[in-house]
């Protein structure tokens, strides 16, 4: 979503993005001219008249589970967004019984918060696990 019109979205997709992604952008390219949606989400820069790089993870119940906002010159990390969605999906499937420690990604250990784990995380989880190998 940006403040551009759907006509500009079409030009950008058809003339540039479709040359990077086969078949073009597969999801809706939303237009928010006037920035009203961006204002509601707190990412509209009224001085510049544009929206900043805000990204919101919304779960199947319509609840915001996470967000990230960057200023214009730095692009996002799509892999990190996907990792976060995978982590939230795991937590949701376990109905909150499991939690994903720092640096978790699919295949890495999760933690089961409870009375027995209090003060004992250091025994089962090492800081090296927070990083990619």
């Amino acid at each position: 979503m940006s403040v551009d019109s759907v006509f500009v979205h079409k030009m950008w997709n058809d003339n540039e993005l479709s040359k990077m992604v086969t078949g073009g952008v597969p999801f809706p390219m939303l237009s928010d001219s006037g920035g009203r949606v961006g204002t509601t989400y707190g990412i509209y820069d009224a001085d510049a008249g544009v929206e900043t790089r805000g990204r919101f993870i919304i779960d199947p119940d319509g609840i915001i589970q996470g967000f990230e906002v960057l200023t214009p010159p730095v692009g996002r990390n799509v892999s990190e967004s996907i990792r976060q969605v995978q982590a939230f999906q795991l937590v949701r499937e376990s109905k909150g019984a499991q939690a994903t420690p720092s640096g978790w990604k699919p295949g890495k250990m999760t933690l089961k918060p409870g009375p027995d784990l209090v003060g004992k995380v250091w025994e089962v989880w090492k800081t090296s696990m927070a990083f990619d190998e």
Binding site: M1, D4, G38, R55, I58, F88
Partner: peptide, 22 residues
């Protein structure tokens, strides 16, 4: 409409504008 996506995990992304390089 955003609520049409209820039941799915949804990523809502804002950006400064088309053709803004990154």
């Amino acid at each position: 409409t955003l609520s049409e996506y209820l039941g799915k995990w949804t990523l809502l992304c804002f950006y400064p504008g088309d053709f803004t390089f990154v």
